[in-house]
Design a protein around this nucleic acid. Structure first.
Lengths: 135, 135
DNA sequence: CAGTATCCAACTCGATACTG
DNA sequence: CAGTATCGAGTTGGATACTG
């Protein structure tokens, strides 16, 4: 895992984000937040995920105490995943953030390009314009 | 940017997480949550960040409407970054998650190894043991 | 001071195929 | 069914050096 920046020791945000870091983890937590689901059904519910990644992310959530893994010794094999009480707390803690996210326009930045500046004009973000000495 | 899984349309969590996705973004938002700070001071406050990455992540936050960038036409150059009102909302929305994170043991999983299983025993996560037919 | 430009290593995730 | 193993592409962030 990539080293995270030092943070104020009393702030748990870094650790919380580390736990949900993973492309499918938020969806997994959401899927499990009401009832246990088996491996195969999770796979069907998350179209596009591969078995490898599904297993990896479930395993990480399990290690972090978010998810419980129950093995039933049957044939064919059957394994059910569920949220722990601790994990349910995470699901709740995330709610406010999700609400905030609704105010966002769908396509978020990340790789957006800065538009080319018109000649002779320096643009400032809130719309202020400073004309340079040549104008 | 990597494609995110389909989500329930009315849930903003994915978009919210996209906005804070970036190694230094949570720290940046925290640093700016009270007063405007210049580029150079931010760099000093986040030991280990490079100018390239600092600029990139500030730019993305700006595009997403979290951060405001104010250019003062002086010499030497001076640029101040601050949280927008919208960005302040994000800072608040994240609070509950940070609280939850405090209950976590510091080193989070991600790459944890599954311990080698002792011969003849199948381990299940909550400590239940199923002995196989050879025992 | 506040960027920009290159180059590159690490990490995540997906494709695919195989096993108990 | 529920994993495991292997390989490779894409993305992120760090090192370094240069500019208005």
């Amino acid at each position: 895992m990539k080293k995270q920046p030092d943070q104020t020791p009393e702030c748990g945000l870094g650790r919380a984000l580390a736990v949900i870091k993973g492309k499918w983890k938020p969806s997994l937590i959401w899927e499990l937040h009401q009832r246990p689901i088996r491996f195969g059904e999770l796979k069907r519910r998350l179209p596009g995920i591969t078995e490898k990644v599904l297993f990896e992310q479930l395993r990480q959530l399990e290690v972090d105490g978010i998810v419980h893994r129950e093995v039933y010794d049957e044939l064919p094999a059957r394994v059910e995943y569920s949220l722990t009480t601790f994990g349910a707390g995470l699901n709740a803690a995330v709610h406010e953030l999700a609400e905030w996210g609704k105010r966002l326009p769908s396509p978020t930045s990340a790789v957006a390009e800065r538009p080319p500046l018109p000649e002779g004009v320096i643009r400032v973000s809130r719309g202020v314009r400073l004309h340079d000495s040549t104008s």
